[in-house]
């Protein structure tokens, strides 16, 4: 087996990507510090990053359609790459789930004065109850808590159904793709995208409701912090996932895939299932319990 065709020609894409990420973050930094050209640099960086990613994926797709078509070893490399990328994403979510666990079970018992830890409670904030969700923060003059917490049976339950259904539709798309029925597969892929968008619509609705009616804001004490950082990070992943599903749908209609060569589809499906599973965990520990 000769692998000399695996050698990739030199490329300008990464250096452009580095400049783009640097500009994005540097613009953000300047914006935070009211330094000049903050937003401008940020928008420039993001645009450049998107353009770079477009050309990067275009290069990979072109290679996939020509030189590397049916290359088993290349296919396996992408599988390992995507699997470990998902592993690192799970670790990222794990960090925030860990924060939730620690705050609920350790911090609340310290600040709330469970037996054995009364001293901290009486010295710092004797009025703080230590109940979860935290509606009254230890120091309400600095961090005004929300009026109500998020319940699970309403939008979150609908969203759970939506994501579970999208897991079904993407599997149907996969089965049809293996049968090389491109149009039907594309239809199911479109359904998945629409479900993803519906999820995002409901989540946006929920956020607006949280801000306007619940008084549940990003700065409303630890309950709001954790709620928004976990659901926000997840929502960001749904957004990225939906964009990826869309690109794959176009590729399905362009008949880029056949029975044996459709790892791009599978990679996105893996990602989508990861987002799905994370949501289930989120639904249980953030909304329900």
């Amino acid at each position: 087996m000769s692998s000399d065709h695996h050698i990739i020609p030199p490329t300008y894409l990464p250096i452009v990507g580095s400049v783009a990420i640097f500009c994005t973050l540097f613009g953000f930094l300047n914006w935070l510090h009211d330094s000049p050209y903050g937003i401008e640099t940020l928008v420039f960086g993001l645009t450049l990053l998107l353009i770079m990613m477009f050309f990067w994926f275009r290069a990979v797709i072109n290679e996939n359609l020509t030189t590397f078509r049916g290359d088993k070893q290349m296919d396996r490399s992408f599988r390992y790459g995507m699997a470990w990328f998902i592993f690192t994403e799970v670790a990222l979510f794990g960090a925030f789930f860990g924060v939730l666990f620690y705050v609920r079970h350790v911090v609340m018992s310290f600040l709330g004065g469970v037996p054995g830890n009364e001293a901290t409670h009486y010295l710092l904030w004797p009025d703080f109850s230590g109940d979860w969700p935290v509606l009254t923060t230890p120091n309400p003059s600095k961090f005004l808590g929300p009026k109500m917490a998020m319940g699970p049976w309403g939008i979150p339950a609908i969203n759970t159904m939506i994501l579970l259904t999208s897991g079904l539709t993407i599997t149907l798309a996969h089965w049809r793709l293996i049968e090389e029925k491109h149009k039907v597969a594309g239809f199911w892929q479109l359904c998945t995208i629409l479900l993803g968008m519906a999820f995002l619509y409901f989540q946006a609705h929920e956020y607006i409701e949280a801000y306007t009616e619940y008084g549940l804001r990003f700065d409303a004490g630890i309950y709001g912090n954790i709620f928004f950082i976990l659901t926000g990070l997840h929502g960001f992943h749904v957004t990225v996932g939906t964009i990826m599903l869309f690109v794959i749908m176009i590729r399905i209609f362009l008949e880029h895939f056949d029975e044996h060569n459709h790892f791009a589809f599978e990679a996105v499906a893996w990602y989508w299932h990861m987002v799905d599973v994370v949501w289930l965990a989120l639904f249980v520990v953030v909304y329900w319990l």
């Binding site: 935070l32 924060v99 620690y102 705050v103 350790v106 911090v107 609340m108 310290f110 600040l111 710092l124 935290v134 923060t137 230890p138 120091n139 600095k142 961090f143 804001r217 990003f218 700065d219 004490g221 630890i222 309950y223 912090n225 954790i226 950082i229």
Partner: peptide, 18 residues
């Protein structure tokens, strides 16, 4: 630092120990 959260601030229910 910038968006008013209190992950590491006990006054809002977080913890520096976290």
């Amino acid at each position: 630092r910038h968006f008013g959260t209190s992950f590491f601030n006990a006054a809002g229910g977080g913890s520096p120990l976290l």
